[in-house]
Design a binder for these strands. Structure first.
Lengths: 224, 224
DNA sequence: GCGAGCATTCGACTAAAGTCGTAGACGCGA
DNA sequence: TCGCGTCTACGACTTTAGTCGAATGCTCGC
């Protein structure tokens, strides 16, 4: 068997380190790389046989959970393992609540990383408690609801959404995606509908909940 | 001596409970109440002799830290104690980093609350470590910078900002504040300048940092 | 093949956001 | 009392955002 593993991280050095850590444990793996959310989606579109995504939560754009939520929702058959420098129980729990197949701490040693990735590739289920995550489902309900909405976005819409979460204006987004501003606006209308937001500001506020301290999540804003 | 203490919390029952807890410890205190950010500012404008503000972090609008940052920056001589249901070290540390004079856990007993409030009223300094907060200044630098920007806002501008962080549109804000939409826009222009944001979406993203998990705070977004 | 449904794209139009200049009210120091 | 600065407020104008309808292409099932 031959696995294709997509490594998503903005630091070239870390991508190399991750490949090195996995080289011994996954001799039958082929590694692809992506350094941003757009390149992640490009890879997923052009490469059909990807078996596992290793996703850095701290990608530029700072909405790593949004990316995870969208990936898991739009392509449930594609396993995603979260890689993060911060490995406190809350972060781990959120990642698993959003459907991540595993959690790799950047401070872990190569043997641990290789073992965990190998387990996921073989289809072995992850143990949440083994990762130090005490599940508190009620606190994650709002997140899951939001994740389901995010999953409704198409790939192109999610690219637009990502740049929206960076505070870009439509003209800028259009330039980056090499489409017309009119097209961006059309996507934006659809995004707002799917997320249940009245305007882009509310959409950003909704996205902010996915990176919030869960204990600070408030009931949904009254729409008027 | 006679102290005036302003209790800011949206739950009438809790305000009453807080008054009850303080009644024995602060027999010479007069209590004022506010149930929202606007009423907080109204009280501060019309009452000149307030000696202490007890501020609930979870006020409607969910940007309790923004309120604290603005209060401490715009009126440094006015002591503020933070009241919060969540009392994890990170929350405590943020509150103290933003200049709070103390931290009251909602799960604390009346004797403790009375003792701590009395100490602050007598001008005794708070001990950060006693509150279980290990100070990590480097992680709070971004917050302090943001707090300084927030403090530049005038009272009316901060009211507008608060409603902006709720996702309201200018027309709605104008109606709530009983001013013209043109005036709201003028305030908005000034707010964006002071916060260093290009539009309201970026302003909301900046505000979001004050409620973020500090470990997820990223370098400032590249302005283009 | 062929129509249904969806993603993507865009132009035209309306609504909202943001800028600029201006004016009155207020406090504060010369 | 007279500036001087600041907060607040507003109208006119430009820019940006968002909606609607429509065209293209693509996949999937019949």
């Amino acid at each position: 068997m031959n696995y294709q593993v997509l490594i998503v991280d903005d630091h070239p050095l870390f991508r190399a380190a991750l490949k090195g850590a996995l080289a011994s444990a996954c001799t039958d793996c082929e590694f692809l790389e992506a350094d941003s959310v757009p390149s992640l989606f490009d890879a997923l579109e052009h490469q059909q046989n990807i078996d596992l995504v290793l996703l850095d939560l701290n990608l530029p754009g700072a909405h790593g959970f949004c990316v995870l939520a969208h990936l898991r929702g739009s392509r449930p058959e594609l396993p995603v393992m979260v890689v993060s420098a911060t490995d406190d129980p809350r972060t781990v729990r959120h990642a698993l609540a959003l459907g991540a197949q595993g959690f790799l701490s950047k401070s872990a040693d190569a043997a641990t990383i290789g073992r965990d990735v190998g387990a996921v590739l073989r289809g072995e289920p992850v143990s949440a408690t083994a990762l130090g995550a005490s599940l508190e489902p009620e606190a994650d309900e709002a997140m899951l609801d939001l994740a389901q909405r995010l999953a409704q976005l198409t790939a192109q819409q999610f690219r637009v959404f990502g740049m929206l979460c960076l505070g870009r204006v439509n003209k800028n987004i259009a330039y980056e995606l090499e489409i017309t501003e009119a097209t961006v606006k059309a996507h934006m209308t659809s995004i707002l509908r799917k997320l249940g937001a009245a305007n882009r500001t509310q959409a950003v506020l909704l996205a902010g909940r996915l990176v919030l301290d869960p204990q600070q999540i408030r009931p949904p804003p009254e729409e008027d």
